[in-house]
Each structure stands twice: as structure tokens, then as C-alpha cells.
């Protein structure tokens, strides 16, 4: 496991001794890891182990109990409102449902962050919108409302909005949830292309094994019992690693309820 180094480093995300929870409930206990520029990292683990919670902390939606999270060497935990906004322009998030605004067309959804953060002339903004939709293969759907397109298209439109400001880091919460295998593979493909062409660092919360092997260069495995990181490595390594039972079971799809005769 990477040890978080001193404050200024090349790592684009540094999580240092993070403890999180809701009320008295502790979700993560003193976890630390670094994510390097351009990496594609999958955060996985069983349901309820706190993947979404970790993600919400990394984008500043929740405040940790202790510890720090640095995004591009700036603490999002200790940032004031203005600093936080600045940090957030470096990140884009694709929420599970796409989280498009239902009353706005796709084009207006994508325009929203661009208008909010830049003072580009409207003609240029329109070109940017066209460009983003082209990137996610949704050219021609500019004037559709979210309710008029399919689930896979919603995810891609959400992605177009997430990359509206060319973020350095893209977060995905269970991108393949609710998608058919083809749409899900399309999205994986798109994630890879965006990583390659924009050089964006990508953090994906997922438990879709196919996706993990397709896109992730590194997997961080969380555990509910110990509230900590139990494995960190390439998907291939984790699949072979027999030292940790949960990880091995996860990657080899072994149900926890079967009797283990070889125990």
C-alpha cells in the first residue's frame, strides 16, 4: 500500500488517516491511500462497506471525523466555501442515476456548469456543449429532455456534464448499475477514452467485475468488518492473491454462504 508522503507530492488525491462515520457509527477507521495523476482506480467491496461514503468525502459532500483529503495538494476538508468551489472545478462526478436536471434539455444541463464557472461568449459555450455531446456519442440529442432518453444515454449525458469543465479527476458511483451489458461496456470504453484523451484521473466505485478488469489499473478493496482497506493492487494480482479471503472470494465470485470444505 502506498504511504501518504509529505504534503507536496505528485499524487493528485491523498487520503491521510481518514476516519468517517455518521453519528456514532464509524464507517472507515484511519484509512490512507494515494492516487496518482492519470490512474484509473476502482474502489470496491461488498454492499454497505462505505464506498459511496468515501466518494462523498472525496468530493466534499461530507466532513470526516478526522484525517484529511488533499485534491491536487489542497485540502478539501479544511477548505472554506470559496476554496472548495475552486477545488471542485477540478473534479467531475457522475452520480448513480446520472442526476440530470429533469426540467432542462441535455444541452442546458451541460451548459449549466460552464456558465456558472466561466465567462465565455454564448457561441463558444454552445460549441463546447456540442463538443461534449459528441465526445459521449450523443450528437443530435441536444434538445432532448432527460425523460426522453434511455438509461444508458442518461449516464452518458451525465458524463458529458461531468466533463464539461475538463476536470483533472472524474468520480463515478457505480456507473454500470442499471445498464445492460452493452451500454455498460460502452460506458467503460468511454471511460478509457476519456482517461487517455483528457489525461483525467478516474476513480470508480463499482462491484462489477467485468468493468474492473476492463478499465481499472488498480483496485482498492474496502472491508466492512475492519473498516479499513484490505487489499490494494492490480485486479489480476488481487484475483490471484489467496492471502486475503474476502478479496479472493470477491474476485472469484465465491458466495459467502457455502460451506468451505477445505477450511
Amino acid at each position: 500500500m502506498n504511504k501518504p508522503s509529505d504534503k507536496f507530492s505528485n499524487s493528485i488525491i491523498q487520503v491521510c488517516n481518514l476516519t468517517t462515520g455518521y453519528g456514532d457509527l464509524i464507517i472507515h477507521k484511519n484509512i490512507s491511500f494515494n492516487i496518482e495523476k492519470g490512474e484509473i482506480v476502482a474502489i470496491c467491496g461488498g454492499s454497505g462497506c462505505g464506498k459511496s461514503t468515501l466518494l462523498r468525502h472525496m468530493i466534499g459532500l461530507e466532513t470526516p471525523k478526522s484525517g484529511d483529503i488533499l485534491i491536487d495538494n489542497e485540502s478539501i476538508v479544511n477548505a472554506n466555501q470559496k476554496e472548495k468551489l475552486k477545488i471542485l472545478t477540478k473534479t467531475g462526478v457522475l452520480f448513480q442515476s446520472g442526476a440530470l436536471f429533469g426540467s432542462l434539455t441535455l444541452a442546458e444541463n451541460i451548459k449549466l456548469p460552464i456558465k456558472e464557472y466561466t465567462n465565455l461568449p454564448s457561441e463558444t459555450i454552445e460549441i463546447l456543449v456540442q463538443l461534449k455531446l459528441e465526445m459521449v456519442n450523443l450528437s443530435g440529442f441536444e434538445n432532448y429532455l432527460p425523460s426522453e432518453i434511455s438509461g444508458g444515454m442518461k449516464k452518458r449525458a451525465g458524463l458529458a456534464r461531468a466533463i464539461a469543465l475538463d476536470p483533472m479527476i472524474l468520480f463515478f458511483d457505480e456507473p454500470s448499475a442499471g445498464l445492460d451489458p452493452v451500454s455498460s461496456a460502452d460506458l467503460d470504453n468511454l471511460i478509457l477514452q476519456i482517461n487517455k484523451s483528457l489525461g483525467a484521473t478516474i476513480v470508480i466505485v463499482t462491484h462489477e467485475l467485468a468493468s474492473i478488469f476492463e478499465v481499472a489499473e488498480r483496485v482498492i478493496m474496502l472491508d466492512k468488518e475492519t473498516k479499513s482497506i484490505i487489499s490494494d493492487g492490480t485486479p489480476e494480482d488481487l484475483k490471484r492473491d489467496k492471502t486475503n479471503r474476502q478479496t479472493y472470494d470477491f474476485f472469484n465470485r465465491i458466495p459467502s454462504i457455502i460451506e468451505r470444505s477445505n477450511d
Binding site: T105, A107, L131
Partner: peptide
């Protein structure tokens, strides 16, 4: 790399945005 994601020729034609 960046332009590989898009077809720059097709983008030369503006589209109409309708609210």
C-alpha cells in the same frame, strides 16, 4: 489525443439549441 475523441469536421456545423 484530445481531438481523437471528436469529429472536428462535423462540429463545424452549428446545431440549433431549442428551449
Amino acid at each position: 489525443n484530445f481531438l481523437s475523441l471528436i469529429d472536428i469536421n462535423s462540429l463545424a456545423n452549428p446545431v440549433k439549441f431549442i428551449t
